[in-house]
Design a protein around this nucleic acid. Structure first.
Lengths: 127, 127
DNA sequence: TGCTTGGTGGCGTCATGGTGCAAGTATAGT
DNA sequence: ACTATACTTGCACCATGACGCCACCAAGCA
């Protein structure tokens, strides 16, 4: 019933600990990225390096038009894409810098947690 | 019909371009992280900084036992957790280093794509 | 051989959400 | 006004998967 070696905190203490990680490990954002079709579209936009219209993207991915429209709107709502409507066409662009920064922050937040764990034992948190 | 400004590649070229990003933006991994309950369990394990048993974790998160067991197994299968079965108890531990590294690689892969785009115009890819 | 503990797996239920079609809206051009 | 373009949205269908209950199995112990 005891862990294999002397270790920092019990899970009960750990859950109650508030950490930057909990904000960054945001299920809403990750869910948006976790859908294969959306990942393709995002990757395409990042590779492209310029704003693209819904039509352009739909053409090259052989996905139904309405599907692409919905996915791009979803990603824009999640803050992953910038949408710029000019006349009747909408230019979507991926904000690569912001996305990269988010992932780096996430990595940093994970590093912060490692065996510096006295903070953990103090039990100041809220999960 | 033309983009608002002079820009690197067309989406048709972009999709065909093979990039490190496509491997790292793995929907299977992201889907595992995108589930709120799993995110809580993972965060708990990372904060804890030591291997925990299924029972321990289930106790502190007021979630049905079998649910926790399934989620931990799922994450282990995805490579996010290490599972170490000793006797009848299984010790799950989060590999924080690997996870942080993955996110940093992802960030780097995104950075790689920005307007250096001549690679993009060459059209050597496969989406 | 039983009994308990720690965990897994099956099943039914339910909610979420991705997809394609078709209809609707809004903008631009003639 | 008419038409074409560029999206958006409603709808029905379907697949996935999270959840809790319960039955099971496997390991340790008396």
């Amino acid at each position: 019933m005891t862990p294999p070696s002397k270790q920092p905190a019990s899970p009960k203490q750990a859950v109650r600990r508030r950490a930057r990680l909990d904000a960054l490990l945001d299920p809403d954002l990750l869910k948006v990225l976790a859908e294969p079709t959306r990942a393709r579209l995002l990757s395409c936009l990042l590779k492209c390096g310029r704003p693209c219209s819904v039509t352009e993207i739909a053409e090259c991915c052989s996905i139904d038009f309405s599907v692409v429209s919905r996915h791009l709107a979803t990603m824009a709502r999640a803050g992953i894409l910038d949408a710029d409507k000019q006349g009747r066409t909408v230019w979507y662009a991926a904000d690569g810098d912001a996305l990269a920064e988010h992932f780096r922050d996430l990595a940093d937040a994970i590093d912060e947690l490692r065996p510096d764990d006295d903070a953990c034992a103090s039990g100041a948190c809220g999960c």
